[in-house]
Design a binder for these strands. Structure first.
Length: 579
RNA sequence: GCCCCGGUAGCUCAGCAGGAUAGAGCAGCCGCCUCCUAAGCGGCAGGUCGCAGGUUCGAAUCCUGCCCGGGGCACCA
């Protein structure tokens, strides 16, 4: 409809140019938007005000001229000039009601774009290091990433969801060491636990599990494990302990411990995400990248963008907009995380996605320029990579800021949040806010307010509609959908106008939210829609004696129920039939 | 020091590819269940949109500077 009105305006401007009332080179971008106020009609255009200067005419006079030049349309009932020179379009009732029929007929597809019509996107999100359970910061990334993926899919993208598993490198060694030490402790050995190890309770539990499966296999004399090591340099101390653990266990058993720890934690993360209604097509292992890192580095070298200095191999990132150059291969020959990430994104590009959508924690923002630089250096269009930064929630409990450290094991887990406020409330709560918005997350408040959470408000609208139909059955009546569809013109209270208007907007909301990559627009819209419904519900009885009017109202709330369900599905929130 | 994000009602936040009177929820106050779920509805009150300039017919929205808050600036991942 919006495009239709733009086309009408374009025709009118051409007509005015032919009549010499407008300079031929006047070629404004025609902006049509939904009127914010229903008194301003359905759609509004500011075209006359934008053209007033070049046309050297007062905006209202110009608006009048455009109005007169508009070709007739079966969908437009009238056009008014208003305010400083707006053109307000009022649709015919039939045009306005068309969306109600579509919502009923198309059901779950209402508001969705043609599948794949916008291209293909790889959405990478969460990608939390597999060293411990997900915490509430990851929860925000999961909720945002999943909603964004759903949203893009709804708008017409073909979406692939991926979780990048950092299962290589030093942190895995520290994890293996930490698990092994807990295992020895569980077996009754007196071994000290390093300050910088992963201290979380979860590892103690995983260690007990390992001990019950393998009561003897990983036992080693460990009393002297730390002998002669200085703990003054905690990180170096940790690395030394890792070395001794590897020696004590031997390569095979060391690897077995590491894999056990990794599998246990990844399984836990997967279960957690599933319960959070988040799923992935693929968990991409950093280890599987092993043989692709050197070729990626080679490609950068072949293109002349690397050099050696201080014994390391550097990427000339500063030539592509980054602050400084970045190391690809360290002095000790080990490639960096960055090198792996370049290989990973090169792999994504080679898989042929039109858009690489990365959802990262905002603490990684300094990392964006170097990755973009690398892709540019490799000859890719840097615009294919878009990175969305999600601010971590800063947690407060009892007015105190909570420390968040995976290694120290001090964090509120996503699971705890879910147990406390429920999956739907947590998902909606996260989805309501813009991702880059800082979030003071007062746990006491969030938990105490759970009954006031707007998610219930929206879900209740859905459940209430089901309730109306249950009531209908109890009164021995049925909904004649054909009669309802034929009698939508009977819906003329102001409350019905408002609901019809909002349902008609839904496809535009999806399109706009997807284009802006802002799932929170869906949440905002749903609150508005639910509010319009609850007001309508209170003011107007649906189950009335007049059959045609009754069926028309039931058709309208059926359409509304569909839109609520479709919108909630994008946010990963359930649409209950009763509450 | 440099970079990113934010500063809108008492609180938490929408609104920001400029547009017609700045919105919502919560908290506060006043009302509403012989009526399809009161997890609801109606109403009242609450704002120099951080500050100062600039661009524009028009600025919460764009530009510049400053102030305040958060985060980031690794041969960690």
């Amino acid at each position: 409809m919006k495009r239709h009105i733009v086309a009408l305006l374009a025709d009118a401007l051409e007509q005015l140019k032919r009549d010499g009332k407008l300079p031929v080179d006047a070629d404004p971008e025609i902006q049509v938007e939904r009127a914010r106020d229903r008194a301003h009609g359905d759609y509004a255009a500011n075209t006359a005000m934008m053209l007033a200067k070049v046309a050297r005419k007062p905006p209202r006079e110009l608006a009048e001229a455009i109005r007169a030049a508009l070709p007739p349309s079966p969908d437009v009932a009238s056009v008014e000039v208003a305010g400083p020179g707006f053109l307000n379009f009022i649709l015919t009732p039939a045009a306005r009601l068309a969306s109600i029929r579509r919502a009923v007929d198309e059901g779950a597809d209402y508001g969705r774009g043609k599948p794949g019509s916008l291209g293909s996107a790889l959405v990478e999100f969460v990608s939390a290091n597999p060293t411990g359970p997900l915490h509430v910061g990851h929860g925000r990334g999961a909720a945002f990433g999943d909603a964004l993926a759903n949203l893009l899919e709804a708008a017409g993208w073909c979406v692939h969801r991926e979780y990048y598993v950092n299962d290589a490198g030093r942190q895995m060694d520290i994890l293996a060491l930490s698990l092994w030490l807990r295992y020895l402790q569980a077996a009754g050995e007196m071994v000290p636990f390093p300050e910088k190890g992963y201290r979380g309770e979860y590892l103690i539990e995983h260690a007990r599990e390992l001990l019950s499966r393998e009561p003897r296999r990983f036992i080693r004399p460990a009393a002297d494990l730390a002998d002669g090591l200085s703990a003054d340099e905690p990180e170096a101390y940790l690395d030394a302990l890792v070395g001794r653990a590897r020696d004590a266990l031997g390569a095979d058993d060391y690897r077995a411990v590491l894999d056990f720890a990794l599998d246990a934690i990844l399984d836990d993360i997967r279960d957690d995400l599933e319960a959070f209604s988040v799923s992935f097509h693929n968990y991409f292992s950093e280890r599987d990248l092993a043989d692709r890192i050197e070729p990626a580095i080679q490609r950068l070298t072949d293109a002349g963008h690397t050099y050696k200095a201080d014994g390391a191999l550097w990427f000339r990132a500063s030539a592509f907009g980054d602050d400084k150059d970045r190391v690809l291969r360290r002095e000790n020959g080990v490639t960096t995380y960055f090198a792996a990430d370049v290989a990973y994104h090169l792999d994504k590009l080679e898989r042929g996605f039109d858009a690489l959508v990365d959802v990262w924690g905002s603490d990684h923002h300094g990392y964006v320029p170097r990755l973009r630089a690398a892709l540019t250096a490799l000859g890719a269009d840097p615009k294919r990579l878009e990175v969305h930064l999600v601010q971590f929630a800063i947690l407060y409990r009892g007015g105190e800021k909570l420390p968040m450290s995976t290694r120290a094991g001090e964090f509120v887990t996503l699971r705890e949040l879910r147990d406390e406020v429920g999956k739907d409330a947590a998902r909606f709560f996260y989805a309501m806010r813009r991702a880059e918005q800082h979030l003071d997350f007062d746990l006491d408040l969030a938990k105490s307010q759970s009954a006031d959470n707007p998610v219930y408000y929206v879900q209740y609208a859905h459940a209430r509609i089901y309730s109306v139909f249950r009531q209908l059955g109890e009164r021995g009546l049925t909904h004649d959908t054909a009669r309802g569809a034929e009698n939508l013109h009977l819906l003329e209270t102001e409350h019905e106008e408002a609901v019809i208007d909002l349902i008609g907007r839904y496809p535009e909301i999806v399109e706009g939210a997807a284009a802006a990559r802002e799932p929170h627009q869906i949440a905002q819209y749903l609150r508005e829609l639910a509010a319009a419904f609850h007001t309508y519900y209170k003011a107007v009885p649906f189950i009335v004696d007049h059959p045609a009017l009754r069926d028309a109202r039931l058709t309208l709330i059926t359409a509304l129920r569909r839109v609520v369900a479709n919108g909630l599905a994008i946010l990963g929130v359930s649409a209950p039939e009763r509450m």
